[in-house]
Design a protein around this nucleic acid. Structure first.
Lengths: 389, 389
DNA sequence: AAAACTTTTTAAAAGTTTTAAAAAGTTATT
DNA sequence: AATAACTTTTTAAAACTTTTAAAAAGTTTT
């Protein structure tokens, strides 16, 4: 990435910055940053925002992206059952959204449905020429370089989703795994900001992991790092969707809490969940709502997944010794219920000396994490487009 | 590290190299490498070794460290029960050694004993002024920056072993964790040479892990990454030395194979191990020897630790997605017995798509890994000493 | 044996960083 | 309240590195 692109990316994240600040963040010398800033001012891509508050010496001149630039980002956040589409500007503001479109990824029409909704969304909100890129985040073995989702075979349109959207709209498109996008959001906008070694657990229908090492997303040798959900940690030998037994996912995801709750209800136990799940379209939302109301059964089962997440966290702690572990994704909303059980398991399964090195936190981004990360994905890839036209 | 030091380090590892090769490896331009090489030639620190075999064009001039330099390295490889001391030169040759000194680290005199043996060793083999550094590798939470071993409390001399040796001999001294040194050896001298993401399992009395990410040792946020042996993976709830239950180490180390074998023998089963363990001073060696002879009981118990190591490897595969996992340390000698069971467990507990991305190999460095890594540790830290005098 | 191709090495130009000095503030002292 | 001392940013010059181009030294093909 060229220097100007890096500057613009920083200005996107930080909103305003001085030459000295940029120089330090980018590890580039002041003269060269100054030159780039002056050219960007000339091109009216950035604007002067006056002087910063003093920190004890000469006040620094601040610069930010020009708000009048006609450049926008479309992001598509996909999970197992719901898809959301957002239009945002370079000031991190959401200008339009269509959230929680019911869309089951196992349905053969899923790809066509995404396309349909996105077409209507774009047509009704924005001139496609003003969109610098479309970002997609979805579960699975997504290779962001090839743009392919290897969790689906080649006969499934979802395998090629990125290419399909890109050719359909003729807008640069980028795709990545949902948990990596969530991790990126936590790193840039959440409590991962000052942490170089961060693990982000994306608790949702499944349980994903985004790994940040040395301030960068870690993808492993072939892009498959972070497959947390299928490590052999469970004692019950229930069969996982992946075909193996003993996977963490079976006992540590929102799905498993829902399954367990529904099973208990069938066995005659009372829970407000049985009412809520009929009125709310999203089972996860019903579970979370029930927990917030204080439903005992749901809280019990959420506690159980918390304990298993904690056991998984113990493994991660010992192997990776991170500064911080952030519980993010939809499940972050019930963080207060999860946390005590997570802590219990960590105490039980970790060496205290190691466990105390790592802060375990609940995300403060909640639902917005995936959207923020997916949008940032576009900025990271296509910010140069605001330079070239 | 300054350019000249980097060049010398490379020449230590690779023995001879061209300017073009160094330039590429170091990511530094040819002119600047040329200048440094000429200065080093001038100083007689390196020598011209003639031309390389042609690769299709002009033959490259090769350079290597001057063999007449009077610089040597002392390395001390410590494990739970045995310590070995080596003297080596800058051509990677061992000039003197005292191996397998029986020395139990739990013994309060351990530190004094190491000091005593090392004093006699140095006095009888080398002029201390010619030693560029002493390297120590030992088990435990070693912080190589502070030089402290945090596995021992401050009232234990082993906590300060590095400082003790350094002041005693007045030779620059560096210490690191044994598994990290083994991993470094595999990276530089073993089959990890061309792998950027490598995990090295140091199978010994315990079971350690060295993590290499992007070609560098990964230490985590606070230096404690790789605590593989205490992840909660065991089904039997036996108590571990760390105080927790269910640690991998309890079922996946040479100690556990020895314990199990001895227990079986006590229960009346036959094994050549009972004879060997009386004649050989080192139980691990007795176990390995018995396995090589083909002793059924020992092979059975080694197979069991192999299976558990494989289960641990499955966890690592999913989380870190490395190019390669190398089984190293003393246990590498029985790699052929371990391997089928490791593979069994990997097949059982891993997603095939992920498992097939990673090669699992037995080290070809065997016993020498720790010595090579510990010596390289000195080169990495103190090679500059051959420049300054 | 000459031409075409490869790779290393040298030389010049372009670019970047480092260092030093100047400018613009803030805080402490008289 | 004015001055001195201190901080931090910005500008300017010098030092250093890399990039690019050309030359040199081989090897392989025709």
């Amino acid at each position: 990435m060229e220097l100007k692109e890096k500057i613009l990316t920083y200005l996107y994240y930080l909103k305003e910055q001085s030459i000295a600040g940029l120089s330090k963040s980018l590890a580039k010398s002041t003269p060269i940053v100054t030159k780039a800033i002056n050219e960007l001012l000339e091109q009216k891509i950035i604007v002067d925002k006056g002087l910063a508050a003093s920190t004890g010496g000469r006040r620094a001149a601040l610069y930010s992206l020009n708000e009048n630039l006609d450049n926008f980002i479309v992001s598509v956040s996909i999970d197992q059952f719901y898809t959301s589409i957002y239009l945002s500007n370079l000031q991190q503001e959401i200008l339009a959204e269509e959230v929680d479109i019911k869309l089951d990824l196992t349905d053969p029409t899923a790809s066509a449905n995404i396309l349909k909704h996105l077409r209507i969304f774009i047509e009704s909100h924005i001139d496609a020429k003003k969109v610098i890129g479309i970002g997609i985040s979805m579960p699975g073995f997504v290779n962001s370089t090839t743009g392919l989702n290897n969790s689906y075979t080649e006969d499934n349109p979802l395998h090629y989703l990125k290419n399909t959207l890109e050719t359909e709209f003729n807008i640069p498109t980028v795709i990545d795994n949902d948990s990596r996008c969530v991790a990126w959001a936590e790193k840039e906008f959440g409590s991962g900001i000052n942490s170089t070694h961060t693990l982000v657990i994306n608790l949702n229908w499944g349980v994903g992991l985004g790994i940040i090492i040395n301030g960068e997303i870690f993808t492993g040798a072939t892009g498959f790092a972070g497959e947390f959900s299928h490590i052999p940690l469970s004692n019950t030998n229930s069969l996982c969707s992946c075909g193996k037994r003993g996977c963490l996912e079976v006992e540590a995801s929102l799905k498993s809490a829902i399954d367990q709750t529904e099973m208990s209800i069938q066995q005659g136990e009372y829970s407000i969940y049985s009412t809520l799940s009929k009125t709310m379209s999203n089972k996860s939302d019903a579970l979370i709502e029930a927990a917030k109301i204080g439903d005992q059964l749901v809280i019990y089962h959420i506690g159980k997944i918390g304990y298993m997440i904690g056991k998984g966290i113990s493994t991660l702690l010992h192997i990776l010794n991170p500064n911080k572990i952030i519980i993010s994704g939809r499940g972050a909303e019930i963080g207060n219920i999860l946390m005590p059980q997570i802590q219990n398991a960590v105490n039980e399964f970790s060496i205290p000396r190691i466990a105390k090195m790592t802060k375990i936190e609940i995300s403060n981004l909640h639902k917005t994490a995936q959207q923020k990360g997916t949008t940032a994905l576009v900025v990271e890839h296509y910010i140069n487009h605001i330079l070239t036209n």
